[in-house]
Amino acid sequence: MRIFDPHIHMTSRTTDDYEAMYAAGVRAVVEPAFWLGQPRTSPASFLDYFDALLGWEPFRAAQYGIAHHCTLALNPKEANDPRCTPVLDALPRYLVKDNVVAVGEIGYDSMTPAEDTALAAQLQLAADHGLPALVHTPHRDKLAGLRRTLDVVRESALPMDRVLVDHLNETTVKEARDSGCWLGFSVYPDTKMDEERMVAILRAHGPERVLVNSAADWGKSDPLKTRKVADLMLAEGFTEDDVDRVLWRNPVAFYGLSGRLRLDVDTPEPTHEGNSILRGTPRDAPRPAGASATEA
C-alpha cells in the first residue's frame, strides 16, 4: 500500500514518526506552512521557517525514504498581526522554488478584514505563480467560513479546480463538493474527523476529488491516521483501487497541478554519531528502517 499524506506538519514530529510512517506505507508528504503554536513577532522568523521547509525537513524525510514537498503562505491566524503581514512581500521569491507545490495554508480563522485581504492576495499569488492553493476552513463557525471562503475563491483569478479546501466534515462536504473544489479531510484522534466518519463520507459522496490527511502537528494528533483510514476502507468493502485513489492518486493529481511534484526519493545513506539526526547507527542495524527498500 502506498500512501501520500497531503497535509502533515513534520517539523513538529520526531524521526520515530518518520520511521513508523514509512513502515505504514507513507512514501510522500506535503507540509503546509502554518502557525507554530507560539506567535511569531517578525517576518524574519517566517523566512527561517520557510528555509527549513525547503532545506532541513526534506533532508530529514529523505533519510527515511519519504518524498517531502511544502506549501508556503502567511497563515490565517497570523494574517491578523501587523508585525507578520510584511512576509507577504517576501513570498514571491519563495513561490518560485522547486519544492513548493501550492500556496497554503491560507483561509479564515476569525473571519476578519485582515484575513480577507491576506486570502485574496495569496490566491492571486497562486494564480501568478502557476500554483494551486490549499485553503484551511475555520474551526469556529465552519459552514459560514466555508461559504465566505468559496465566495472569495470565485472572485479570485484562481479556478476552483485548483483549490483544495481542507478540514471538511459532514456539515460542509456537500457545498464544497458542489463548488468543484478538491475536498480535504483531516483525521484526528479527538477533533475534526475520525476514521469511521471518514469512511461514511466516502460511502455517501464517493472518492472523487477526496484527499485524506493526518494534519499531524504539535498538538494531539496521529501521523498514521492515513493508514488507519485505508485499513478501515478495506474492512468496510472499498477496493484496493479505491484506497489507492484516495490515499495516493488524488493527492498526486492535485499537487501535480504545480508541475513540480517529484515522487522519487534520493535517500542519503545513514550518517552516524553525534552530528546527524540518526544519532549513531545501531551496532546490529547498519541502515535505518527508512533507508531500506522494504515495502510495508
Partner: peptide, 11 residues
C-alpha cells in the same frame, strides 16, 4: 560511505 542522493532519480 555517504552517498548524497544515492538513489538514481531517473534513468
Amino acid at each position: 560511505m555517504n552517498r548524497p542522493h544515492a538513489t538514481p532519480a531517473t534513468p
